[in-house]
Design a protein around this nucleic acid. Structure first.
Lengths: 117, 117
DNA sequence: TTAACGATTGAGCACTTGTTCACATGTTGA
DNA sequence: TCAACATGTGAACAAGTGCTCAATCGTTAA
């Protein structure tokens, strides 16, 4: 009898595990949720979000503000676009980016409260 | 004159960049914030959080629920503990974990609204 | 049409990360 | 004290990630 078998027999609170397992499998969008948090979990992307909270900015201004190359910013913006965290409009040669969704500010506010400030 | 120099001269909205840069540097806790989101950005850890939202669970029950080894769960719980996303109490040989902070549920709720469900 | 230029993209890489494995720790009951 | 067992931890490795570099795209103005 392996340790894990032992554990299943003697340690597990079976009804609770069953309930939680069912609840988790009912959550169809856990992966999407994790994907969203992962995007916010990188300092560069989080700074982009925080910067755009103050108003729309072009790629070049974001690069200057964050001290990174425009290529690096553009790569990250694509990821943020794909998950609809940011949107953009084009004006001639320049792309202006802004937040796509008011929920994003709410997410960040909640997290800041957790951090405690 | 390199392209980036050109960009700084002709593309940047200088006052806005300056304002945003100052605002970002005033945010002392961006790294902590990103660290918190990064923890929520892994499916395993997010499932742990969602499971604990239904009540405290021991390591073994979490491992059974998520279909992972107890070692893997334990490693992740340590990370969650370090950032005070979860807390635990010990009862004999068994550690019971639970959410450490009501803000976490709020963060997740906001994010779920963003996903759209 | 052409040059200029902001933005985008793919390849490549150094670095990070989540898991497994083996072992250590700490508590319980005999 | 000793065996059993839930949990914790360090090393190692495969997979994933963020940046740079070079090339390309798309728009503007001459």
């Amino acid at each position: 009898m392996t340790p894990s078998e032992t554990c299943e027999v003697f340690c597990v609170n079976a009804p609770k595990v069953k309930a939680v397992t069912q609840e988790l499998s009912a959550q169809k969008n856990i992966i999407d949720l994790a994907e969203t948090f992962k995007l916010l979990g990188d300092p560069t992307r989080l700074k982009i979000i925080l910067a755009l909270r103050m108003g729309e900015l072009c790629v070049c201004d974001l690069a200057t503000t964050l001290g990174l190359s425009r290529s690096a910013i553009s790569h990250q913006l694509r990821l943020l676009r794909n998950l609809r965290l940011v949107k953009f409009r084009r004006e001639g040669k320049i792309s202006f980016y802004s937040l796509d969704d008011s929920h994003i500010a709410a997410i960040i506010d909640s997290a800041m409260e957790h951090i405690g400030e």
